[in-house]
């Protein structure tokens, strides 16, 4: 395989990482029944604060930790405001999105242009030496490996443990779960805060590893909305959410390849339409029943399997408050 292609594929994996981590985080909290709509602002604020902390102390790990703390705190406001104070999750999330973006821009005004510190690249022993696969997947910064671990860890927890069953039950059938002894609201607290912390880690991954530094307006503006859409596209399943994140990164890489190629005459600015057209397009695809109609064309046996794979029903109780 030619080295340039391997390079591109490897950068796709890296570029998708913040979206992967944030998407997984949001999947966890939505599975427990809480929509954390503040993603766009949370990502920006945690990226800014994480970068500032790392800059001040010279410690990247601390930067990531502070980013997670910020994300968790924002999620705490959403979930506590919803459970204790009975405010709408969407309303709280929306206000927080705007507020956090503004706070990030205000507090980060002197940070733009500061010399970026970057996570070191770590090659995984043995695996990094495998031809093709090694350079694509295992010669990255540490945060990328964290995202791999998260993907499989969360999937395993969600579908193969009792704890994961309780998590899904509190998002799908909170009354039933409660009747069986699950403390629904306590779980919602836990998973929303955990999900928020992951969103914060995604933000820190932006400013400390993938696009190091901070600029005004921040480069990751809008990413949070895409992450939210990816969760829907992914049907609230960790694997498909991650697939969506990588798909987005692939299409962006394609766009920038077009941008660089001299043969194609296309207004560069209009390429920025692509992620958004894609977002609307994929949502139409999974929400409108088009998929169902296409499925009927398939042979019977394949139908069931594909339908299961493409299933994208939201957790039944998503966004509703549960009063025991």
């Amino acid at each position: 395989m030619n080295p340039e292609l391997i390079n591109i594929l490897s950068s796709i994996i890296a570029n998708a990482t913040p979206l992967v981590i944030a998407g997984i985080g949001e999947t966890i909290s939505e599975r427990s029944g809480v929509t954390n709509l503040s993603l766009d602002g949370s990502l920006q604020l945690s990226a800014m604060v994480g970068f500032a902390a790392a800059l001040a102390t010279g410690n990247i790990l601390l930067g990531c930790f502070v980013g997670m703390l910020v994300g968790a705190l924002i999620a705490l406001i959403v979930v506590a405001g919803n459970i204790e104070l009975r405010q709408d999750q969407v309303a709280l999330g929306f206000v927080l999105t705007l507020l956090c973006a503004d706070i990030a821009q205000f507090l980060g005004q002197d940070l733009s242009g500061e010399r970026a510190i970057t996570m070191p690249r770590v090659n995984v022993p043995l695996l990094a030496d495998i031809p093709i696969i090694g350079p694509i997947f295992f010669q990255h910064t540490a945060i990328v490996y964290v995202s791999y671990a998260l993907i499989f860890g969360v999937w395993w927890w969600m579908f193969h443990t009792r704890g994961g069953l309780a998590l899904r039950a509190s998002g799908d059938r909170p009354e039933t779960a409660f009747a069986r002894g699950t403390r629904v609201n306590r779980l919602r607290y836990f998973y929303t805060i955990l999900g928020g912390a992951l969103v914060g880690l995604g933000g820190a991954a932006f400013s400390l590893a993938i696009k190091p530094g901070w600029s005004n307006p921040p480069a990751m503006r809008g990413e949070g909305w895409i992450a939210l859409a990816i969760v829907i596209f992914g049907g609230w399943h960790p694997f498909r959410v991650v697939l969506g994140a990588y798909l987005f990164a692939v299409l962006r890489a394609l766009a920038s390849a077009i941008q660089r190629s001299p043969d194609i005459d296309f207004p560069l600015v209009l390429l920025n339409l692509l992620p958004w057209l894609l977002m609307i397009g994929t949502l139409v695809l999974v929400s409108s029943g088009v998929v169902d109609r296409l499925l009927r064309l398939l042979p019977e046996r394949a139908q069931k399997w594909t339908r299961n794979f493409l299933r994208s029903d939201p957790p039944t109780a998503l966004g509703t408050r549960f009063d025991p």
């Binding site: 909305w225 859409a229 600015v269 920025n272 958004w276 057209l277 949502l283 139409v284 929400s287």
Partner: peptide
């Protein structure tokens, strides 16, 4: 997008915001 295609208005809205803003820059 909401009534015919089932896309929640939050996401339809965010997407359309970005589309028109990119187009204006163009």
């Amino acid at each position: 997008l909401k009534t015919r295609f089932g896309v929640h208005e939050i996401f339809g809205g965010v997407g359309l915001n970005a589309l028109v803003s990119v187009y204006a820059i163009y």
